[in-house]
Design a protein around this nucleic acid. Structure first.
Lengths: 338, 338
DNA sequence: AAGCTCCGTGCACACGTGTGCATCCATCGA
DNA sequence: TCGATGGATGCACACGTGTGCACGGAGCTT
């Protein structure tokens, strides 16, 4: 139904190949003819068919982005960065959510393969290397975000979570805390382990032992997971005076649980988060956190991908690291004097 | 480079048309032959080309979703619902963000048209009807979410904001409040006007006049907009004892501003939001709000779209309305006794 | 045994775009 | 005047898939 170059050709009394060349500014077409054809094309409402073009050029000018959950405030910021950069370069974006579900994951990767995407950006920490390999075997370049799989078979860009974990811990120690807990979560994957590693390294650097009971874990990375995970620690004697949470969402849960327990933050308990999700600033008290540059993480991943699509395939996987900064707000303070 | 049906045909010593039919379970191919070819196809790692298929069938099995900003916690929930429903039906999703920017908006609509999407779901309240008409002229069915343009040239599904606004206001009045303010925002578009209309209707139904100064407006729909918008009202004498905010994000800003002003919520000021963004529950105090079924809004929009793609074009635009429910938490209470 | 039906398969073209090559014509130099 | 040059355009095929139609053969009826 839509207008094709053949329709234009008929009206312009030329061959469709001439129209094709004119629209692509081929040098063999004289300027005035090209101009005439272009005017005709816009007047007729011509919109090129991406499908036909991809078929011929074997380039779809589309990228896939796989997330665990688009409603995650962290991921949605990353995706925003990706979308912006990708759009600027004239690419389109397929959005796919995997929900940590194996079946779903295979389904979306399959659909991306059918679409013949030029590349995929994966923000899904739980995705299985084996399934990704399938895509890569297909010749699709891959960029992983915050997912340092030990396989390292793909390019990746990641936030330096070890450094971030150290910075947060250092801040708490500088305030005078000595009993500091880390609240992680298995669903955090490598990120949670890295932040924990930073925490442990900084504790060790200060000559502090991590007591049993200070390594906590919540069932998920949301507020409910924070509430559940902090439970045991509040009953500890002596109680930790500060807790470093895997992310801001869990920290929100901790804040609420602390309030329910009658603890004042930060007078009785200091709470630090991670990511600087945009609501962190509006928590009560406003959350001390480590600001991951989410938007830039997405942008950089997209740019890396675009570079990969331009130049030749690098032999070695490219691994970029990005750093954030500590944001001290009101949820952390000196420990209570005993 | 990828395997095509021709490659399979060569190996199976049949014509490519036979392979095509076998894979699509055409009844003219006997079962055992079809089985043989299918096995061969999976063994060879065949993945059909969506581009070629679309070209031939003039169906892309892809939908476009246009949002103002994917990082918006409300929209990202809606998109999640869309993605789920769409994926289930075997469709893919193009994500496009318009950012209330005219140029960007035309750009993304154009790219969706080039992709020959089968339909578009628009969650962008600011999008211009004229630009949408362009797409529709192209034969692309449109479903608008929460965007009742007076033109009504497209199908739409919307939350009943008037009813929601009434419910929130009724709740505040039932608590005993008489001086109730509404904090809206121009960027909220029709939604803000509808919630305000509900507020005014309910006030009128109780025989209460809306005093000048009770209709407030913030510059944007985020916490900063709430902070800015509530400013004047706090200085009013007598001060409103309750404020109904356009959405939860603005309410968060109001909560913070109230704290800064030394007001206790809800003892001195009741604050109600709208949408039930998932952080509302973790605000301090937990926010009373009107829960819009965001996820279902997305699902229903997607299903409506899928129905449209199945059946014949309806003559009349379809307009569906969906209702939410009031969630009473701790940010609202009886007015202070004077 | 001839003709019919029906089943399985292949041929050929189509979708919309891109491109190598041939063709045609005008211009120029010898 | 003729051949060479080069610019403008058309022809034909390709990309991967789907489908109408024809063809050939097997099995049946008359």
């Amino acid at each position: 139904m839509p207008v094709t170059i053949k329709d234009i050709a008929r009206r312009a009394r030329v061959a469709h190949s001439t129209v094709s060349r004119a629209l692509r500014d081929d040098s063999s077409i004289p300027a005035h003819t090209a101009e005439r054809i272009k005017r005709l094309a816009t007047r007729m409402g011509y919109i090129p068919s991406a499908a036909a073009r991809s078929l011929k050029t074997t380039q779809s000018r589309a990228l896939g982005v796989v997330v665990t959950n688009i409603a995650d405030p962290f991921l949605s910021e990353v995706v925003r960065g990706i979308e912006e950069a990708v759009r600027e370069a004239g690419y389109s974006l397929f959005l796919a959510a995997a929900y940590r579900d194996r079946e779903r994951e295979r389904l979306v990767l399959r659909s991306l393969a059918e679409r013949r995407i030029d590349g995929a950006i994966i923000c899904s920490s739980q995705i299985l290397p084996a399934d990704l390999a399938e895509l890569e075997k297909f010749g699709v370049p891959l960029v992983l975000i915050n997912n340092q799989a030990p396989e390292r078979f793909a390019h990746s860009i990641a936030h330096d979570d070890v450094a971030g974990g150290r910075a947060v811990t250092r801040h708490l120690l500088a305030l005078g805390h000595r009993r500091v807990a880390y609240l992680g979560t298995p669903v955090g994957g490598q990120a949670s382990l890295d932040r924990q590693a930073g925490y442990e390294a900084e504790m060790a650097a200060h000559g502090l032992a991590v007591k049993p009971g200070w390594l906590l874990a919540g069932p998920d990375s949301r507020p409910a997971g924070g509430q559940a995970g902090i439970g045991l620690a509040l009953a500890l004697a002596p109680r930790p005076t500060a807790v470093f949470c895997f992310n801001d969402m869990m920290a929100l849960g901790v804040l609420q649980r602390a309030r329910q327990a009658g603890l004042r933050v930060p007078a009785d308990l200091s709470v630090a988060g991670f990511d600087d999700v945009f609501v962190a600033e509006y928590a009560e008290p406003p959350l001390t956190t480590f600001a991951q540059p989410k938007h830039r993480l997405g942008q950089d991943a997209a740019r890396l991908m675009l570079d990969l699509l331009q130049g030749p395939r690098p032999k070695q996987p490219i691994v970029k690291t990005i750093r954030g900064e500590l944001l001290v707000r009101a949820s952390t303070g000196p420990p209570p004097r005993v």
